[in-house]
Amino acid sequence: MNIFRLAGDMTHLASVLVLLLKIHTIKSCAGVSLRTQELYAIVFATRYLDIFTSFVSVYNTFMKLVFLGSSFSIVWYMRYHKAVHRTYDREQDTFRHWFLVLPCLVLALLIHEKFTFLEVLWTFSLYLEAVAILPQLVLLQRTRNIDNLTGQYIFLLGGYRGLYILNWIYRYFTEPHFVHWITWIAGLVQTLLYADFFYYYFLRFIGGRGVE
């Protein structure tokens, strides 16, 4: 564990807490894409299958349970909780996110580090996570103005993988044979997809107004 990875995990944790805070306290998911949340639930479900077979550390297992629990409860809130579901913008959240799942699965079957069930699904979760934010970014474009909590959620979610890139650079120089091209490229693509959002986020943030 290094400071970059810890910062990345804490940023990721903060993003899900901000979203849970928004949904649970003000009972609103306005501006949040249910489709992105569904994709993230699949990402964690396919990435953390090894939670029962390989124990890395208490921290690792605890965080996996937090991410699994939060992603599925956010989907449940947005789908079935009356008050929250009412604030879901169904008409605008129309990105065909299931069209992202199949190509990621095919790509994982073609490009992976080891051809085993767990490893292929783990690789699939990497590819899917790289594009999972797309429905949310499209919804953002359509709803133009979003509240600060949603903006902070997206900012933290984009930032965590950026910190992971610093972690991979650090590990590459400090650990021999630490080379994971698939993870690195997927992480880079994922972070670059936020570039546009980060630009406007900083512009508005500096301007002191909401994110438009």
């Binding site: 995990d9 090894d50 690792n60």
Partner: peptide, 10 residues
């Protein structure tokens, strides 16, 4: 289990 394939990252 060979370390290279046990994923220690989240």
């Amino acid at each position: 289990q060979d370390q290279s394939h046990s994923h220690d990252e989240l």
